[in-house]
Amino acid sequence: MIDLRNVSKTYPGGNVALHDVNLHLDDGEFAFIVGSSGAGKSTLLKLLLHEEKPTTGQIYVNDFAVHKLKPSQVPYLRRSLGIVFQDFRLIPSLNVYDNVAFSLRAVGASKQEIRKKVPFMLELVGLQDKFKSRPDALSGGEQQRVALARALVNNPRIIIADEPTGNVDPERSMEIVSLLEQINKLGPGILMVTHDHNLVHRFRKRVIRIEDGTVLSDRKGGIY
């Protein structure tokens, strides 16, 4: 669940990134966030992840009041989210298996749990045969699927994907969003930032359009 109430963010220097944003996303919902560059999409994600704090307003993510979260609680907020980035952010020195296991180790999972969950996730994203490969030996699409497996392995309630198809060719982009749609059916909500019109048209999900720091439109089954 994501709930933003009258959220504004002004950066030092006076740059207003978001202005009076109200937004609600139910558990298990799938939504695209669209908008031109500099519209405030990245700031919105940073606020959800507690990378930035709102200047005013309240933010609730899952069971956390993010706007007044103590630093010691931040890791637990992030564990309730699965995060996928445009540039994958895999650790180059670790192989596919260890990159996925990394998320589990970070939350103190036992060896048995890791041995059980990682192969399951790799199978889900179709990379069970490449578990020994290093990220640089994989294509962009494959790297993003590893990142997706890593995001999923801790059973997050929401997956936040920041332009996950930005570095992937159109065909692989469709595969990744299809995979997200499949994951969504298993339970987690999906909030995906994208620039890709075709993807938005094709999947017909809720579309939240942000321009100049405000929510310009918010339509279910919308187009962009």
């Binding site: 890791p75 895999l90 650790i91 970070a106 939350v107």
Partner: peptide, 13 residues
């Protein structure tokens, strides 16, 4: 970068 990834997956300090 490694540290940043750790933070994002919810690793404690």
């Amino acid at each position: 970068r490694e540290i940043n990834i750790m933070k994002m997956v919810g690793a404690t300090n």
